[in-house]
Simulated assay, not measured.
Amino acid sequence: MTLFPLISAIVAAPEAITAPEGGAGLRRDSYDPGAAHRPLAATLAVGLPVALVVAVALSPMIVKPKPVLSPLIGTLIKIEKPVDPPPDKQPETSPTPKSHSVREAVKPLVDLGPRTDLGAEVKPFVPDPIPYDPGPPARPADPPAPPPLVLAKLDPRYAAGFQPDYPASEQRREVEGAVRVRVLIGTDGRVKAVELVSTDSPGFFEETKRRALAKWRFKPATRGGVPEESWQVMTVRFEIKGA
Rank of each mutant, 00 (worst) to 15 (best):
L3Y: 08
L3W: 09
I7E: 00
A9E: 15
I10E: 05
A13E: 01
T18K: 03
T18R: 04
P20Q: 03
G22I: 08
G23A: 08
G23W: 12
G25P: 06
R27E: 10
S30A: 14
Y31F: 03
H37S: 11
A41M: 07
A42R: 11
A42I: 13
A45L: 13
V50Y: 04
A51S: 06
V53Y: 04
V54C: 08
A55K: 03
V56L: 12
V56T: 09
A57H: 10
S59L: 12
S59V: 11
V63F: 06
K66F: 11
V68F: 10
L69Y: 04
G74L: 10
G74Y: 13
I77R: 05
P82W: 07
V83D: 06
V83A: 08
D84Y: 02
K89F: 02
Q90G: 07
P91S: 04
P91E: 09
E92A: 15
T93S: 08
S94G: 02
S94F: 08
T96I: 05
P97H: 10
S99C: 04
H100C: 02
H100W: 09
S101D: 11
S101Y: 14
V102W: 15
R103P: 00
R103L: 04
A105V: 13
V106G: 02
V106W: 05
K107S: 12
P108D: 11
L109S: 06
G119S: 13
G119A: 12
A120H: 01
V126Q: 07
D128C: 03
D128P: 14
P129E: 12
I130F: 12
Y132W: 10
D133Q: 12
P136F: 13
R139V: 15
P143T: 11
P144C: 04
P148V: 15
L149R: 06
V150S: 01
V150G: 00
L151I: 09
A152G: 13
L154T: 08
R157P: 00
R157D: 05
Y158Q: 11
G161W: 06
G161E: 15
F162N: 08
Q163G: 02
P164H: 14
P164L: 04
D165F: 01
P167I: 02
S169V: 11
Q171V: 07
R173W: 03
R173N: 13
V175I: 14
E176D: 11
V179N: 01
V183N: 02
G186F: 06
T187N: 09
T187A: 06
G189K: 15
R190K: 13
R190L: 12
V194Y: 05
V194M: 11
E195N: 15
D200V: 09
S201N: 11
T208R: 01
T208M: 02
K209P: 03
R210G: 09
R211V: 07
R211K: 10
R211N: 14
K215A: 15
K215W: 10
F218C: 14
K219R: 07
K219Y: 05
P220I: 04
R223E: 11
R223T: 14
G224N: 08
V226L: 09
E228C: 06
E228S: 03
W231P: 01
W231L: 13
Q232I: 09
M234D: 03
M234H: 05
V236W: 00
R237V: 05
F238C: 01
F238A: 00
K241D: 00
A243Y: 04
